[in-house]
Amino acid sequence: MNCKEVAELVSQSLDRPLTLRQRLCIRYHLWKCEWCVCYKKQLQHLKECLGQFEQGVCDGSVQPHCALSDQAKARIKKILCERDPSE
């Protein structure tokens, strides 16, 4: 197995259980390939961090990368005020 095949399987391992044979092939390749070891770590790190992404949006550690326009804000506020049942 080469890096290309291993990279594909490493990605799949994040989405489905691999067969024993596939796992052994990966392990053997990783034993002799430092770049694929790094690749695997990077994908795992990415997945772990993204598992907390929504939480980050909620607690503010993920900053908004874009903003609602002033017009959109005004429009939404107007619609909400018209529908506000408490008013």
């Binding site: 949006v57 503010g60 908004p64 990368h65 874009c66 903003a67 609602l68 959109a72 804000k73 939404i76 506020k77 909400l80 005020c81 506000d84 049942p85 408490s86 008013e87």
Partner: peptide, 18 residues
Amino acid sequence: GHLEPERWVEEHGDAMFS
């Protein structure tokens, strides 16, 4: 429920839009 839609939009609008 103390509905403060204006505050909602100001506080959360950008995060939601993003």
